[in-house]
Write a protein that binds this DNA or RNA. Structure first.
Length: 513
RNA sequence: GGUCCCAUCGUCUAUCGGUUAGGACAUCAGGUUUUCAUCCUGAAAAGAGGGGUUCGACUCCCCUUGGGACUACCA
């Protein structure tokens, strides 16, 4: 690695195609906000025929989480946002792919070390031996004096021989970036436009921790440069530290990539970042709750972005987004995560989905395995039967996990309900009984072939009902469902089939005797 | 506290100096309907405030207010 020159700018934009990256820290689950950031990067790359790299920023030893990286990569790939390069899912395996690896920062320690040494040799960074205690009291004093807590450059002013002695004695230390105050850093943010910050606000950031690991600030700059990243799209929280990164690029003599900061996703109160408490913040949670992958993508992409041009389109597929995405549509302000609208979008997707596709999704998600279905009579567990239930529920299903919940009678043999609800309005028991007997007689006559024809069932019963539909249909529906609210009797009949239907009518009649 | 960012209906947003400020979710009211849901129609709902610039500002500039992010050997 000795041939690396600090003036090396060769790998930027060689092909004219953008290279972007998403660089999560594997500290747990995939946050919806992270997914959105990843998505924007992915879409930008796709739109311009570029490369989307996934890099793992695992430089904090104290926050390592078992399997987090693998889960992250799988979640991302599952959502259709798989990387072209870096850590990615190849078939079922999580692998590293690409010429700029390794793509896990914990495997790049010697690289960072080398660049940091270069900075120290040039006097652009220096070892700092300050203890945590000293730093702590120093910051407290500064805060008490209403100053911004910043490192006081104590170790930057150490005598050379003292530094050497301490180093020789292997005194624990970090390496700090030597920032010269008084300079205005101006940059053009891809989403915010011109931003100006004076270096007097920039701390002498720790570059290398005492455990030999780099901090985020060193690692991103080195890696983004070495990996030829041309455009950085990251979360708004990084905006204030961008000057540090610009200064670092300058110190190395590297070309700064284009950079943009995406606003945060807010919780329902519209104030703070969306968190678990706001009814879920992890992608997996939403998936487990029966939200569709494509809905999450569609919903999230619109939270802070829109195609503009007066378009009122709201339903977008991933592939469609890949061809229309434009950085210009990125919004500056934070966006509130609206669960109601998510629900609406999910139900809209469900309504538009082919029935067998819907069936497969629910099966794959394991929602047919809930107690309601598992403990039902076996003939109510067949695919054929479930498909019929689904046909009826499709237009009213909000989430996949809610399958069956509104209509438990589809899976119960004996319904329990008060016979009082059998009568339509003020009708007498006698009238109710007559209605049910009439229904029984009609239904009994349906042939097997006629049972599969929902429209036919409906037309015959509707005709029998005549003008007073409620008198006839209400008792029938209640007898079939035991519920005051349910799908129409025609639909229920269609699902239940002849035997179950007649049986329920008989049982209802028995209650009236 | 300091620095930076942000600001159109309750929410997501369109508008890129001239519009009755449009759409969607949610809400409300009708219609369809045996109930529920769906569906259809309609209503209510916004440029935070104050200064400029301009013939003309939601749109450009400044201030105020409000909100957010950052302020670690975390990312």
């Amino acid at each position: 690695m000795s041939d690396i020159k600090s003036t090396d700018t060769t790998n930027l934009n060689q092909s004219g195609k953008p290279r972007v990256r998403f660089a999560p820290s594997p500290t747990g689950y995939l946050h919806v906000g992270s997914l959105r950031t990843a998505l924007y990067n992915y879409l930008f790359a796709k739109k311009h025929g570029g490369t989307y790299v996934l890099r793992i920023e695992d430089t904090d030893q104290s926050r390592l989480v078992e399997d987090a990286m693998e889960r992250l990569v799988r979640s991302l790939a599952h959502m259709g946002v798989n990387a072209d390069e870096g850590v990615l899912l190849d078939g079922e395996l999580v692998v590293e792919k690409g010429e700029y690896g390794p793509y896990q920062q914990s495997h790049r320690l010697s690289i960072y070390r080398q660049y940091v040494d270069e900075l120290v040799a040039q006097g652009k960074a220096y070892p700092c031996f300050c203890t945590a205690e000293r730093l702590d009291t120093m910051r407290k004093e500064m805060t008490a004096n209403k100053q911004a807590p910043k490192y006081d450059k104590h170790c930057a002013n150490l005598a050379e021989e003292d530094v050497k002695a301490l180093l020789d004695a292997e005194a624990p230390h970090v390496i700090r970036f030597n920032v010269t105050p008084g300079e205005d850093i101006v940059f053009t943010d891809l989403v915010r436009g011109e931003v100006k910050i004076n270096t007097k606000e920039v701390d002498d950031q720790v570059l290398l921790k005492s455990d030999g690991f780099p901090t985020y600030h060193l690692a991103v700059v080195v890696d983004d440069h070495l990996m030829g990243i041309t455009h950085i799209l990251r979360s708004e929280e990084w905006l204030p530290s961008t000057p540090k990164h610009i200064l670092l690029y300058k110190a190395f003599g590297w070309k700064m990539p284009e950079i943009g900061h995406v606003s945060v996703i807010l919780g329902p109160d519209g104030k703070k970042k969306l968190s678990k408490r706001d009814g879920g913040a992890s992608v997996d949670e939403f998936l487990e709750k029966g939200y569709l992958e494509e809905v999450l993508i569609n919903f999230l992409v619109l939270l802070g972005w829109n195609p503009g041009g007066g378009s009122t389109q709201e339903i977008f597929s991933l592939s469609e987004l890949e061809s229309i995405f434009d950085l210009k549509g990125l919004h500056k302000a934070g966006a509130v995560f609206d669960h109601k609208k998510l629900d609406w979008m999910n139900s809209a997707y469900i309504k538009a989905m082919p029935l067998d596709e819907l069936y497969n999704r629910i099966e794959k998600g394991g929602w047919f395995a809930k107690d309601l279905v598992q403990f039902a009579p076996t003939d109510m567990q067949t695919k054929e039967y479930l498909l019929k239930v689904l046909a009826v529920e499709q237009e009213r299903l909000v989430r996949l996990d809610m399958f069956g919940e509104e209509n438990p009678f589809f899976f119960q043999l004996e319904l329990s309900y008060d016979k009082g609800i059998l009568a339509w309005k003020q009708n007498t028991e006698e009238m109710t009984r007559e209605a049910l007997e009439k229904a029984f007689a009609i239904i009994e006559k349906f042939t097997d072939a006629e049972w599969v024809d929902k429209a036919y069932i409906e037309s015959v019963l509707l005709e029998a009902a005549g003008d007073k539909k409620g008198d006839f249909l209400w008792p029938l529906r209640v007898a079939l469902t035991g519920a005051e609210r349910s799908p129409s009797p025609f639909e229920v009949l269609y699902v239940l089939g002849k035997d179950h239907s007649l049986e329920r009518i008989v049982r209802a009649l028995a209650m009236l005797r």
